[in-house]
């Protein structure tokens, strides 16, 4: 069967700090947000993983339009660990037990997909996978399956990982438009390059 899907476009950015510094990441993402020049006060309420997803999809949307059935197929290594640690700190000491609902709600990796869905009004398929490293074959096959069965007409698929020492984001827009064929090799190549 002829492959009729393409990696229409993608965004990719990463940061690796020398030591754990969540505050530095926080400050930096705030700058990135300002640079986008969009008004979205909810951004400031998001956890870091959601902020990364927000920024990535804002950048991606400058290049492509997302149909409302654009699937979100994400994967990462650390799940929501940075926020998990924050929540754990709020309950670790018995005499300072003040869990925060606005932190707890972000202790799931798929919340970033929810934030993106709200921002771009995507009533669509969502799946969040966890693995040590980016599994291009899984992301390719799973996305392809959704497109082939018409459960989505396009997909934002890729890797969005955050730990206390940095982050790595690679989100590709897959659709019937483009020139770079949507294959495992091309996806892996764009991720690594």
């Amino acid at each position: 069967m002829k492959n009729k899907y393409f990696i229409t476009d993608f965004v990719k950015f990463s940061k690796q700090l020398k030591t754990a510094d969540v505050d530095a990441i926080q400050t930096e993402l705030k700058e990135e947000y300002k640079a986008l020049a969009v008004q979205y006060p909810k951004f400031h309420k998001m956890d870091l993983l959601s902020k990364l997803g927000f920024i990535a999809t804002e950048l991606l949307q400058k290049k492509v339009n997302f149909p409302s059935d654009t699937a979100l197929i994400f994967q990462n290594n650390a799940s929501s660990l940075v926020t998990d640690i924050q929540h754990q700190k709020s309950i670790q000491e018995k005499d300072a037990y003040f869990p925060s609902p606005s932190i707890f709600v972000y202790t799931l990796p798929n919340i970033v997909m929810g934030e993106i869905a709200i921002r771009h009004q995507l009533q669509s398929e969502n799946t969040f996978f966890i693995s040590e490293n980016f599994q291009a074959d899984l992301i390719k096959n799973y996305t392809q399956s959704l497109l082939d069965t018409k459960k989505a007409s396009a997909s934002i698929s890729g890797w969005i990982d955050l730990n206390t020492e940095g982050y790595n984001v690679f989100l590709a827009f897959i659709s019937e438009k483009g020139t770079l064929p949507f294959t495992t090799e091309n996806l892996q190549h764009k991720f690594t390059a």
Binding site: L72, V105, I111, M113, G114, E115, A117, I118, H120, Q121, L122, Q123, S124, E125, N126, T127
Partner: peptide
């Protein structure tokens, strides 16, 4: 699966 795109 379909997301509500409404609230987290």
């Amino acid at each position: 699966s379909v997301n509500d795109a409404n609230h987290i």
